[in-house]
Amino acid sequence: MKTVYTRPKSLKDAPYHYCPGCGHSIVHRLICELVDEMDLRGRIICIPPAGCAVLAYNYFDFDTCESAHGRGCAIATGFKRARPDKLIFTYQGDGDMAAIGTAETLHAANRGERITSIFINNAVYGMTGGQMAPTTMVGQKTSTSPYGRRTEIEGYPLKITDLIATLPGAAYVTRTSLATPAKIRETKRSIKKAFEVQMAGIGYSLVEILSPCPTNWKVTPRESFTYLEEIMEKEYPIGVMKDITAKKEG
């Protein structure tokens, strides 16, 4: 029998510390599959965030440089400006990307930095124990919004990907989901496209990935994937928001 699917080489042989059903685990694997398939190991550098995924460097068998909370896009800018020949991507959560790092993210995108951001949106702060995120949905209960997010008190979910899509420096901006195998495959295609856009030197590329956090959503992994598709995708519709390569071709 021939092997149809096996563990990607770039994913170290280390068991994940992530909770059962965690989206980080899936996205890490997709990235490593692409690193193998696109033969990127010798030029790719990842900037993991502060948060659960800070330990990404325990799994990625390619160069990684830790970042302070929210500073990923600034560090990636330093990397890319110093070494434009390298493929630099930030791996960021919602707090990192859309709260503490909003300025770094928006300005890197607006400068059209030739970097890629992989943005994991699970609508909570995972590592710190399920507090409210900028992307927490209205009504959603978290450990710091125990009555559900109320717009008059906590304001609205911040759709930073939509904001970035309006910036001229952003070349490719999309939102995907991990809810089904088909959507996971689409997520992988989107990350590939984002890397290609960076390598073509066109501009900033961003893939927002709606991702489950069963532990902090306080549901089973099975339920979390249903929640992802039925609730989160309603608030955050998936699809390509901007692709300047498509315009050129059109």
């Binding site: 900037i47 440089c65 500073r71 800018t77 330093g78 990397f79 300025a103 770094e104």
Partner: peptide, 13 residues
């Protein structure tokens, strides 16, 4: 804050 982190990134290269 961004500037010092850009320095950090460049220094790491």
């Amino acid at each position: 804050i961004a500037s010092i982190n850009m320095v950090l990134g460049a220094a790491a290269t």
